[in-house]
Write a protein that binds this DNA or RNA. Structure first.
Lengths: 320, 320
DNA sequence: GTTTGACATGAAACGCGTTTCATATCGTAT
DNA sequence: ATACGATATGAAACGCGTTTCATGTCAAAC
C-alpha cells in the first residue's frame, strides 16, 4: 500500500505539495501538480481516511440512534436524515438499540472517542443527565422536546397533538375515547397521558384504565387491539392510535369482522404514512422526512443549539 | 483534550505501559496498572478512536449499501445485519443510494480508503467489473447470486422461487398468470423473467407483455395495479407479486372494490412479512433477518469467500 | 553455578495526512 | 531603487495509539 510519502518521492516534491494538490489548495505550479497526479496514478495511491480523520479531528460521520430499523416510523425518519446526509457529504453510523441503555451508551462513547462528529437520537432511553454529560464531545440532537438547553432538538408537541386529536373526536360526537400506544413509559407516551387526563377532566369524562392500550407497534398488532375491544363490556367508541401501522391493522381487522368504521369504532392514526392515505384513515400528519432533515442539520452545527417544534396536522379522512 | 502521553506523564510510566493497561495486556505490575488507571480518571482521558483506527488499519465499521431505508424489505434485512453487528461489536455505516450509481461508488471508495472494513451491498446497480475492481480493498458481500468467485454472497435463487410460485398457481388451476415487480431492470427481475418465459414455454401458454407489471414497490402501489387490471379486456387470473407490501395493497383494494380473492384474482406475495401473515396472503417466505446475519458474517471474514443459497418456502394461506 | 523462561518496562518506529512556519522568487506599486 | 504582496515549496511539528525490539529482573530448572 502506497502512502503520501511514496507519491512525494516519485513526483520529486514534498509531501506538503502532494497534500496541496490532492486538496486543491492554491499556489502549486502546474508542472508539479501534474507530476503529483501522475505519481498518484502510477502508484495507485489512495488516501487513508483514518489518517485524515486523526489529523483533522473530524470524520464526517453522524451517529443515528434508533430502536428498530424495520418500522416505518423510524424508516421514514431515517430516510430524511440520510437524504440530508447525502447532500452534505456525511455518512451515517447506524446504532440500533432495541431500546437497550447500554447500546445507547455505545453511541455516546463513539462521540467521546471522536469516531463520530455528532449524534442524532431518534428515541431515547438514557436519562437526561447522561446526555448532558456527553454534550461537551459534540452536538447531540434529540427528536424530542429538550429539557436541557444544551442540546438541539426537533420535536413534536405530543401533548398538543394528542389534545387536538381528542378534541376532534369529541367535537364529532365521541365521548368514550381510548388510545393505543407502543411504550407506556416512553417519553411521548407520558405527554400523551397528561393530555388525556387533562382532557377528560375538562370535559368531565370519567377515566377508565382499560381504555389505554399499551404495547402495540406493528400492523399485526391491530388484531390484538380489536380482540381486546371485543371482550370489553363497554368498549370505547373511538380510538387514538399513535401509529398508522397499528391503525391500519385495526381497520383491516374491523373490516374482516364486519365492524363498521367509524360507526362502531372511530380511529385517528398518527404519522400519515402512505398506508393511512390509501386506507382512508384519519390521521395526525407528522412530517417525518422533514424532521429527519432538520435533525441532521442540527447535528452538524457546532456551537449553536436550536429547538424546532414541528407542527402536526390533522388529516381528515373516513375513519372519524 | 488529554492524550495518552499526558496520562503516561502523570502516571510516571511510558506510553507503552498505558497502552498495555488500557488494552489489558499482561505483564504490567499491579502498582503501575493502578497508577495508570488513576491518571486516566484524573485527566478524564478518552482514547481517540481515529488514532487506533489508523494504527490498527481497522475500523470495526461495515458499510451497508441499500436503495431505501424506509421499505420493509430492506428494513428487515437491515435489522438482521444490525443485530449481527451488535453481537460482534461492529457498527454499520449506512449508505443510502436511491439506486444511484455514484452513491454506490462512494461506498467502494470508503472501502478503498480504509474507512470501513467491509461492504454489504443489499441491492446493486454497479457492474460486476466495478465490484471486482474493489475486492482487493476488503470483503464485498452481495445479497445476490455472485457471478465472480471473488465475492461472498447470500442470495435467493429467484429463478427457482419464481418457478415454484408459478407452479403452485398452475397446479391450483390458474393458467393466465401475470406478475408484478419493482424494477424491470433489476438483477432479480431478470431471473424472474427467465423463469416466467421458461414456464410459459413448458406449459405452452402464450406470452402477453401486458401481464408484466413494472414499477410497484409499496402498499399504496397496489391500487394502481388493480386499476390496471380493471382496464384489461383479459386480465390475468393470478398474480405473483414480488413484495408483500404491494400484495397487501392489491388485496385491500380488491376488498374495497368487491373483487373476490382468490376467486377473481389469486395472489402470491413475496417475503412473508407480518402484514402477509395477518392478511392471510399466500407468500414465498424469504428469511430476511437470517440473510442479514449471514451477510454480516461474510463481511467480516477476510481471505475466505463463501456463497450461501437461501431457500424460499411457500407459505400457503388464503389468496390462492 | 549457570541457563532459561516468565515477568516488566520503555524507547522508538510506525500507521499517514495536515498545517504551520520559514524561506525564496518575482512582479508591481511607490 | 525599495517595498510589499502574490506565488511557490518544503521541513518539521502535530494529531495519537500500537507494536516491535531491546533491556533488565528474578526465580525456577539443570
Amino acid at each position: 500500500m502506497t502512502n503520501i510519502k511514496d507519491v512525494a518521492k516519485l513526483a520529486n516534491v514534498s509531501v506538503t505539495t502532494v497534500s496541496r494538490v490532492l486538496n486543491k489548495h492554491p499556489y502549486v505550479s502546474e508542472e508539479k501538480r501534474e507530476a503529483v497526479l501522475d505519481a498518484v496514478k502510477k502508484t495507485n495511491y489512495h488516501i487513508n481516511r483514518n489518517a485524515v480523520n486523526l489529523s483533522k479531528g473530524k470524520t464526517f460521520l453522524i451517529g443515528v440512534v434508533l430502536p428498530y430499523s424495520d418500522h416505518p416510523y423510524f424508516g421514514t425518519l431515517l430516510k430524511g436524515i440520510a437524504n440530508a446526509a447525502l447532500e452534505h457529504n456525511y455518512k451515517l453510523v447506524l446504532i440500533q438499540t432495541n431500546y437497550q441503555k447500554d447500546k445507547e451508551k455505545e453511541a455516546f462513547i463513539m462521540l467521546e472517542q471522536k469516531q463520530i462528529d455528532g449524534l442524532i437520537i431518534c428515541s431515547r432511553v438514557s436519562e437526561w443527565e447522561v446526555i448532558e454529560e456527553y454534550v461537551i464531545y459534540g452536538p447531540i440532537v434529540l427528536a424530542e422536546k429538550n429539557i436541557t438547553e444544551q442540546v438541539s432538538s426537533t420535536y413534536i408537541d405530543h401533548y398538543q397533538a394528542f389534545y387536538q386529536a381528542l378534541n376532534h373526536l369529541y367535537t364529532n360526537g365521541y365521548q368514550s375515547i381510548g388510545y393505543c400506544i407502543n411504550r407506556k413509559n416512553g417519553v411521548s407516551s407520558q405527554q400523551r397521558e397528561r393530555a388525556y387526563h387533562d382532557f377528560l377532566k375538562e370535559k368531565q369524562i370519567p377515566f377508565d384504565q382499560n381504555y389505554i392500550f399499551d404495547g402495540y407497534l406493528n400492523f399485526e398488532d391491530g388484531e390484538r387491539v380489536v380482540q381486546q375491544l371485543k371482550q370489553m363490556k363497554k368498549p370505547p367508541a373511538a380510538l387514538i392510535v399513535t401509529s398508522d401501522q397499528v391503525a391500519a391493522g385495526i381497520v383491516t381487522c374491523c373490516h374482516n369482522l364486519g365492524l363498521q368504521v367509524p360507526k362502531d369504532l372511530a380511529i385517528i392514526g398518527f404519522d400519515n404514512q402512505p398506508i393511512a392515505k390509501y386506507m382512508g384513515i384519519t390521521t395526525m400528519e407528522i412530517p417525518l422526512s422533514e424532521m429527519g432533515e432538520n435533525l441532521f442539520l442540527q447535528a452538524i452545527t457546532r456551537e449553536k443549539v436550536s429547538q424546532k417544534r414541528v407542527n402536526v396536522q390533522l388529516i381528515e379522512r373516513q375513519t372519524v
